[in-house]
Design a protein around this nucleic acid. Structure first.
Lengths: 215, 215
DNA sequence: ACCTGAACACCGTTCAAGT
DNA sequence: ACCTGAACACCGTTCAAGT
């Protein structure tokens, strides 16, 4: 996947208006609630859409709904975007950037003692906050390739980190890959299956991790 | 108009027309390709929809598309169904009945030696045929509560079977629940995550199961 | 009993016209 | 540069009218 040209006509310079907004304090203040006169920028649309997404879910990402939210007509939307897919792509890009926080958090794991790492991983798995976001985003990823790509990157990053930890614990390549894979797939299973089966307790998660991390 | 109409009211006898079709060989032959004169039954619609689903995916379940497929107009659809949700519900019911095959297959596991059970479970996990169906149905379940319920039942049934196996292997209640949960969540993770991470080999799946099934 | 045909609301998309 | 307003295609739904 080169560059990011989603459409079938390659014109990279046109893909994203590069946000040439002057945006004085006046405009910035007006953005607070009832914006009426201030023109919208590309970023305003993406912000508004992500805002809507988090508040009302993936079903609310409809052009009329968004236009109502921003106080403009549908024609305005199509001045900024080629189609609704470009919007979701932009949303996915923005989300990817934001979510790098989680990746950094994972990267920091490598610096700390292995025992603590296991503790932290167990904590991340049981953290309900994560699940809410993850479920929404992964549902969204089913209908959006860009989001799917971002999720895939995160999954691989998680695997790498866990894999590294297993190697640091003294497992050979095969065993480390095995156990890391099991852990990551358990995590993915938890994200998708927690509604169908009794959610494991922190103690149980901890026990399983110990089981897989012990030689 | 409230007489015998299939409106949105509790009237069990009316809920499902009970398929009172005579359906002679003539009609049955005509159903093959270009049906034109034969009237459609409730079951014809459900069959056609499931057929479409398997051939063209969840996106093809549109009323105009289905009508074109069956050679009738949209009005016909609304004589048989209250809305599109009732169609998908009927499809889910039919699928649930079909899928009981998998459940029976699982039930039969309890009768065989534990070592073989583990073999069979590993085989089911690696069987690509399962994944294709599972992925489609589980994607569908995200937008259809009836399908979601059927999937949940299956998941619980799988957990019960694995749990039983762990108990039969000699684990106590806590350990059996722990290890069964880990296995099932790994399976769910595989269904959803196989595109994001390298798919484990049969040998690897086997190793992990042995790891979790060994005291 | 089963279906047609036309209508309506709603969403995505286009475009000429405005400022 | 950014937006309005009106149009069109498409999908879900309703309903009077046909056989």
């Amino acid at each position: 996947m080169t560059a990011g040209s989603t459409a079938d006509h390659p014109d990279p310079s046109d893909e994203r208006p590069a946000t040439p907004r002057p945006k004085s304090k006046k405009a910035q203040a007006q953005q607070r609630r009832t914006r009426r006169t201030a023109r919208l920028t590309y970023d305003d649309w993406v912000d508004g859409a992500l805002n809507l997404l988090s508040r009302e879910g993936v079903a609310a990402i409809k052009i009329p709904r968004l236009c109502q939210e921003l106080g403009v007509t549908k024609g305005s939307f199509y001045w900024h975007f080629d189609d609704i897919e470009q919007l979701t792509t932009a949303m996915a890009d923005r989300w990817s950037a934001t979510q790098s926080e989680t990746v950094r958090e994972l990267g920091a794991f490598v610096g700390i003692p292995v025992e603590e790492r296991i503790e932290k991983m167990a904590a991340m798995l049981v953290d309900r906050r994560h699940w809410l976001v993850e479920t929404t985003v992964r549902e969204w990823s089913r209908s959006n390739p860009k989001v799917a790509a971002a999720v895939r990157t995160l999954d691989q990053e998680v695997f790498e980190t866990v894999h590294r930890t297993m190697l640091d614990l003294g497992f050979d390549e095969y065993q480390a890959g095995l156990r890391a894979g099991a852990m990551v797939y358990i995590g993915l299973g938890l994200i998708h299956g927690r509604d169908n089966l009794p959610t494991p307790t922190t103690a149980q998660v901890h026990s399983v991790i110990e089981l897989l991390a012990r030689p």
